[in-house]
Design a protein around this nucleic acid. Structure first.
Lengths: 261, 261
DNA sequence: CAGTGGTCTAGACCACATG
DNA sequence: ATGTGGTCTAGACCACTGG
């Protein structure tokens, strides 16, 4: 299916822009509204790999015309697929298949990368922010710091096979890590920063998982439609003397991960 | 605000059906589309307790007219509020405020009810199904049973202050609990069933938390709009000899709970 | 510039629940 | 019979992106 070179339509971007939307019949049914049928059809194209991850859909006007429905009706289906994380729309550009792994196990008690490599995904970590600043009252409470203490803020985004999966912000008490920046810039690893400062063992003290909806900036980073449901993870790490050393706030698309405890 | 008896409009159902929608100005803005302004306005009414949990909104036509927008535009806002769990619509009846606690901590290592009473909520548990049947292959693997073993299925729904919060299905190996039904019917408590069969101590072996979208039957039970995002919890309990004795599948509205580990 | 997705209007018909 | 929410149409204008 992927190496089709003949005249038959394939999922290739440039080929037949309406591949997958030929001979599709949608008409009012008692049990399933039209938009739901379109939803099911497109989802089928994605799950059968006819539409591959990253590929672009035909324009809304083209699809609507081909399906014989109004753009609004089509958009009802597209909207649902966006909220479920299968599609992502970029204004002025187009609609693209996100097609993330439907389940992406994260074991809470293991180093982050271990969970990914099992799935054969290539994981890339990108550092967005690394700076020092004064704590907020919230973070001070969490990290047991004075109100005017200094903290280190580290924001990163992780992608699997080029698809952004996870954005997080980590806060550290600055006093514990005088050489944070230099070590981190060399190794790009928080564990190595810990080790360089004499912290060899640390443990997860508490993990909170809640749900929410992607804010515009989160949606932008994760390539989601704003309002898409997400997991919010909120974790505190302690060193071996039970002192808080790391406060993490993370955000995952709801459909891209499963947490295992 | 709640005991208004004068002519001024209040949130009371029968009073002024359009209370809360007087003098609302919505007009196109660069930074916020109309539907988003309506969304914010209604959310404000809910969060300020002007619209109380369980109360009914005016009809869509009335609201749309009052706001000076099309029904479609209004529905864009209502749809968003439904997906976020603030509203629930019943066809042919009306739209109602769900207004659940935005955070509802569940500590994984504590008995279920302990987490609720702290919030001052009155919790009701309703048993939907209690029956014996042959295992599915999936459940057999999870509970380490033979392919033709018998299991006990228990489906329940839990509500806080009359609002359904949590539906779950529990599966037990039937051979371990000959008197399940009789004990359960008397006490309505799984812990008591365990105790009656000599299991005094048991522990959570594994918990998995994932995300999904309410199926029509789940939506019906939880009084949600189908497609609303939910947590799916999947847990296995072991007895003190590490034998699996309980397999739980649960479903929570995304916005009603926070998991703490 | 042309094409994209985002928003909005003014109608309409339907299935459903209630009185 | 009435009012409700659910669906759908046929247009329209806008802001954004890219060539």
């Amino acid at each position: 299916m992927k190496t089709t070179t003949g005249p038959s339509p394939g999922p290739d971007k440039g080929a037949s822009l309406l591949a997958g939307f030929e001979d599709v019949v949608v008409r009012p049914r008692r049990d399933m509204p039209i938009w739901r049928q379109i939803y099911a059809h497109i989802l089928g194209l994605i799950e059968s790999d006819f539409l591959t991850a990253g590929s672009q859909l035909p324009g809304e006007n083209h699809m609507a015309e081909k399906l014989g429905v109004t753009r609004i009706t089509l958009r009802r289906a597209l909207q649902e697929l966006q909220r479920e994380g299968h599609l992502t729309a970029r204004k002025g550009v187009g609609i693209f298949v996100r097609s993330l792994p439907s389940v992406f196990t994260v074991r809470d008690d293991r180093p982050f990368l271990e969970n990914f490599n099992g799935g054969g995904k290539e994981v890339v970590t990108q550092t967005l922010v690394l700076c020092r600043e004064t704590v907020t009252s919230d973070a001070a409470r969490r990290l047991s710091l004075a109100a005017d203490a200094e903290i280190i803020r580290l924001c990163r985004i992780r992608s699997a096979d080029g698809h952004p999966l996870y954005v997080n912000t980590k806060l550290f008490p600055a006093s514990r890590f005088p050489d944070f920046e230099s070590v981190y810039r060399r190794q790009q690893s928080v564990t190595d920063v810990f080790r360089a400062h004499g912290i060899i063992k640390y443990h997860r003290h508490e993990t909170r998982v809640s749900g929410g909806f992607a804010a515009p900036d989160e949606a932008d980073m994760l390539k989601l439609t704003p309002g898409t449901p997400v997991f919010r993870v909120n974790a505190l790490n302690h060193d071996e003397r039970s002192q808080p050393i790391e406060w993490t706030l993370g955000c995952w698309p709801l459909t891209s991960v499963e947490f295992v405890f």
